[in-house]
Design a protein around this nucleic acid. Structure first.
Lengths: 214, 214
DNA sequence: ACCTGAACACCGTTCAAGT
DNA sequence: ACCTGAACACCGTTCAAGT
């Protein structure tokens, strides 16, 4: 037949990614297939391979869009708040996103590229941008601290929040003995920040470092 | 043909799960299929459905075995150590397992049951047992604290370690600006435990809790 | 240049038929 | 009771052929 030039390359890409987001939102990453995608947008499977290298490439591009949305939500939640409140707002916004956009959020972590392949730089950059939002607040909490310290702390703290979400997810909000994801997150933030702000930046105490460190 | 009674049900189950573990170890969860499994053990696909409800059920049972191995490694690593060192040893053992048994460890979190289905109780129990290992050490660090506090803290801290592993994984050991997973984990443990042990258990300070809490 | 249609090599699951 | 073999309804990817 040939729907020649009915859409530009960019329009076609948009069409596909939107359809992919809808399929994932409705049925999870498992519900996504090139054939369903093609049917849904009124093309045949082959056409997808004119724009995307393969299904993995398509999913990575979809996930990058999810990261954009997530980052914007986080940015908005923290805006104009003092650092400690901003950190809690960031955590709560992250949890809210995971609960509201569950399947799209899960797709971010469920999808893994084949063994040798690394995630594209553009993807890694968007992840880094998310950590930077946290790092900014931590830097405000300890202005005299070197930026490398806040970078490390941001990584630790934010990975922690993510870990709580991922592990707490199967049991929905009930994580342990009636404690919610929010409570666990608050515990992490409270204790971590208490330790973080208490620490004397000049002489960093190494509570746990052992001599047999490799 | 009919290889009648060549294996008992239990032998057959063992055969399948071992083959599954080998396939996953070699090629990841994506490399696992009922057809490859059947070929590898010298049966036809249909026979798998006499023992396992479906592929999801098979994967869950495989993952339960992975949890058993992981828990044993953790237990051995912490044995006989004072609490703070034990916690670091637990974290390092977890990271070591993730690095050594990458695909089997990833399969633990990559696999998700269809939307309505909850993970079986036996699986959830094994996860809880892992948290208990951490909780025991935390309880020793703060003996006067109520057990519910250490349970919550164990959940927060251990989820944090897991989050660091999962998020740090794509970039292998280099997590941020040349900092290794070990450094990020130590940062989490150091700061968190500093806050945890400093806190006065009788009057728990709520640094971050806000009035607008829902 | 864009898109199709058919082919190829895979999937998970079921179930009548055989021993 | 145990196991097969074939069928069914799906997959991802490629590519000659058409417009």
């Amino acid at each position: 037949m040939g729907r020649r030039n009915e859409h530009t390359r960019e329009e076609f890409r948009e069409l596909v990614l939107q359809a992919a987001e809808q399929l994932v939102a409705a049925h999870g990453l498992t519900g996504l297939s090139t054939r369903k995608l093609a049917t849904r947008i009124g093309y045949t499977v082959g056409s997808l391979y004119l724009i995307f290298r393969n299904l993995d490439d398509l999913i990575v591009q979809m996930n990058e869009r999810t990261l954009d949305v997530l980052r914007e939500r986080l940015r908005a939640a923290a805006a104009g708040q003092p650092p400690a409140a901003a950190l809690q707002a960031l955590a709560r916004a992250y949890i809210a996103f995971a609960l509201a956009e569950t399947h799209r959020w899960l797709a971010l972590y469920q999808h893994r590229l084949p063994d040798g392949q690394a995630v594209p730089d553009s993807f890694a950059a968007k992840v880094d941008q998310m950590f930077e939002l946290v790092q900014q607040e931590l830097a405000l909490l300890g202005p005299q601290r070197p930026p490398a310290d806040s970078a490390l702390a941001a990584r630790a703290l934010w990975s922690g929040v993510h870990g709580i979400c991922i592990l707490g997810f199967d049991r929905k909000l009930e994580v342990v003995g009636g404690r919610s994801i929010h409570e666990v997150t608050d515990s992490l933030l409270d204790h971590y920040l208490a330790g973080f702000t208490q620490e004397i930046p000049a002489a960093t105490p190494q509570v746990l470092h052992q001599a047999d460190d490799p």
